[in-house]
Design a protein around this nucleic acid. Structure first.
Lengths: 219, 219
DNA sequence: GTCTATACGCCGATAGAC
DNA sequence: GTCTATCGGCGTATAGAC
């Protein structure tokens, strides 16, 4: 499913399989499916109409469920749905950055891979990106941190720091480099997600990368 | 007041003064003051806690008013308060861009003046900038357009178009130039407004301008 | 014209029946 | 375990008293 692009769901199912509860697996799988149906429906509605304009009734309808009682069984509160979405998305993102750091050596390659991921997600899972770039989560999840304070971004800033150390990136505050670099990338994607830029995301990718990298590269 | 930096209020009062309703002026001025107190309180609360987390009771308290009935007399609905805020801010912004175009000849000078304005507003009227850059108005004002579709931004894109015509700016889609240029500017300000960048806005201005202009200038 | 009291609707959450 | 019925609270809006 779109919101959890690193197969958190499959991992959960795999874990359960190892417990040899064969006869219960079908039920559990169905429960997991319902669980994810709710999350997916909520993500879409939150991204489209906003958290406060989305009622549990709306989520119930979109998820193909009969009563909101089922939602209350899976998640105690409406806020818990949003918190779970937030957690899944940020965990996946953080995990992706880890993988990217392992597979790429230079800061430029790592940043390039992150940009690739962001553009790919914008095309394949726009609601995930809306949740990341547009939604103001702190308004409905008090304990949530903004994107810029998330684990993933802390790792990205580390990448930038390393790039400055090796001389790939110009000597400057890594936070400022982050602001400039991802200002271009995220704004391009934000304008794509809102329809201001109307071509496919990939169309803007090369130029956005070039402009962003050029803003921080040591010449 | 902070939300209407082009003296819309004074203009309104001036208009009324010309009507020779001398004996009523005091009352009217007080009414206007209450009117603006409500708008200012609403702006601050919307920017801080969000529209949906702000009740009319909250606005009443923050505005130093005794009952919410007064708010209902001035604005029919809560949404109308937000709509009026939106209108004032966008009108002021659009007017500012007009003035900047009159006072400056080149695209670079005009964009530079707009950047100056944005940084100044971020320092002097942060809640106005939060409303412009962070708040998702379409969630509570259905008829509102996003910043990128506003009159002010249309004028800004015209500035960019002219810059491309004169050869100041690199030949590229003006929308893309807008995305890259204001990606850097707005992201810097957004990160300043959320506290990720902790120095005064002016501290980041020169570098942000340089990086943004460099992203679109013809070399 | 200011304020009090209240109406009304919506939604989140619960509990109990099947 | 699934659903129905309902509770309780909040927040907007109104209407009527002073």
């Amino acid at each position: 499913m779109g919101l959890d692009y690193h197969s958190h769901t499959n991992t959960a199912i795999d874990t359960l399989l190892k417990k040899n509860m064969d006869q219960e697996i079908e039920d559990i799988q169905q429960k997991l499916e319902v669980h994810d149906e709710i999350l997916l429906a909520a993500l879409q509605l939150f991204a489209k109409n906003g958290y406060f304009n989305t009622s549990l009734i709306d989520i119930k309808d979109a998820a193909g469920i009969n009563t909101i009682g089922i939602i209350h069984k899976q998640f105690k509160t409406k806020q818990a749905i949003a918190a779970k979405l937030y957690e899944n998305i940020h965990n996946s993102l953080s995990h992706s950055v880890d993988e990217i750091k392992l597979k790429n050596e230079n800061s430029s390659e790592q940043l390039r891979a992150i940009v690739d991921l962001f553009f790919k997600l914008t095309e394949d899972a726009p609601d995930v990106m809306r949740f990341l770039l547009i939604t103001k989560v702190s308004e409905f999840i008090p304990e949530a941190q903004a994107l810029c304070d998330s684990a993933a971004v802390k790792k990205i800033i580390r990448i930038i720091d390393e790039g400055i150390s090796t001389g790939e990136i110009r000597s400057m505050s890594s936070q400022l480099a982050y602001a400039h670099f991802f200002g271009i990338i995220e704004n391009t994607l934000r304008l794509k997600l809102t329809g201001f830029l109307d071509k496919k995301a990939e169309f803007y990718q090369a130029q956005a990368w070039l402009a962003a990298w050029n803003a921080i590269v040591k010449k």
